[in-house]
Nucleic acid binder design. Structure first.
Lengths: 237, 237
DNA sequence: CCTACCACCTGCAAC
DNA sequence: CGTTGCAGGTGGTAG
């Protein structure tokens, strides 16, 4: 067998590739399906073949379902301690780990131990991966390593129901909002920013970012909240 | 002439700099006006006379309009690279620069280069100066040097519309406070940020930050709440 | 505890 | 456009 990859090894690669369904929650054994090259438009001509030579049998180490913090502005991934201590080298000053993605592209992450929180984290380089892979909270990343040679591999699977943000249009489906109050929209603030008012106690104004898609976004209680540009805001009479 | 002063130097020195928008506030030529002695209650008896001997002609180097970060908890001043490299010595390990203020008081700042951000910064000692001079975002600091002798001088000008903190004596002039309840003054925080007590349910103390725009901002339950500026706060009545 | 300080890091706007 | 200056951050450490 060549390249492969987790439980996918059980099936033939070729068949699997024909059934790829991107951006969907799938059974774990489909995790290593070939998908588009991570966030790159270019094809890596040099290594399209050469990197295949790197194919080795892989031992699955662990998965993690990503939290909002793992994909947010903190630019860090918390690595569960038991997995970190079992599979990764001791985190020293400037420790850097290199992981190959499914396209054999290397990703280098700084890996360190934060005493203050007594946790292991990937920091530098992680946010680039998040963006390239378009990872969102609820998505799963999977770490594995080569059976020989000390190589690490990283892969990911998008979850079916994207949980990157709370969509206000679906607010009715969310748990009851902790603040009782009406949400009113005010005039757009110009230059891509708008201000909306959450009318409750206390009254607060939030900077609302308007995305190219027309979605509006602001943060409340550490949550990125989006609501559609066209639809009226629920409760916003 | 004695001690002086902005416009004189500016006239003789050069028109250069093509008058790069000094970020308004006031005319630069008012910068060196004599103002109160830097934030000290005590008079410096020893040097009330002696330091006057230090009067020299000064060459203006550069100004900077302070950002919130320059006066905030980061305890550092970013020195624009072009000015740093033009006027200051090479930043080595432990480099320290001494600047005399308008009262001839010396202020020593650690001056270093941060490779990671490729920027020059004043660190140690800077925050003390910020507090002593009651600097706030939007204020301008001005660096000059003696025409001879390698001495450095620092001065500052407060922004016309003070954005340092909320003066509760002027509370009546502020837009209606969005929280229902009594607002009491506490002892002056002394550290550039005002601490206020909002007597409501529950009683909470908040650090109020004032943005360059004049908007005031504090966090409540993780929410960045802004008020002030031009518009009255909706529902604040 | 807290604050300052230190050496990193990153997104983004402006050039 | 890619590059970069820099505003705004981080965890760790010393005191």
């Amino acid at each position: 067998m060549d390249l492969i990859l987790g439980t996918l090894v059980e099936a033939t690669q070729e068949v699997q590739e024909k059934h790829q369904q991107e951006e969907q929650c799938q059974k774990p054994d489909l995790l290593y399906q070939r998908q588009q090259v991570l966030g790159r438009d270019r094809q890596h001509g040099d290594n399209g073949d050469g990197k295949r030579t790197g194919a080795v049998e892989r031992e699955h180490m662990f998965d993690k379902v990503l939290t909002p913090s793992d994909v947010g502005k903190l630019n860090r991934l918390v690595v569960p301690k038991q997995h970190a201590e079992r599979f990764f080298p001791v985190a020293g000053a400037g420790t850097q780990l290199c992981f190959e993605d499914r396209a054999a592209e290397p990703w280098r992450f700084r890996y360190s131990y934060w005493r203050s929180s007594q946790s292991y984290v990937m920091t530098k380089g992680w946010s680039r991966f998040v963006r390239a892979a378009r990872l969102a909270a609820g998505d799963t990343i999977s770490f594995s390593r080569g059976a020989v040679g000390g190589r690490y591999f990283i892969d990911y699977r998008h979850c079916q129901r994207r949980r990157r943000d709370i969509n206000f249009n679906d607010a009715a489906a969310l748990p009851a909002w902790p603040l009782l109050g009406r949400v009113k929209r005010t005039a757009a603030g110009g230059s891509g920013g708008a201000t909306m008012t959450v009318d409750t106690v206390p009254v607060a104004r939030h900077h609302v970012e308007v995305k190219p898609t027309g979605m509006r976004c602001f943060r409340l209680f550490g949550v990125n909240i989006e609501y559609g540009g066209d639809d009226p805001v629920p409760g916003g009479g």
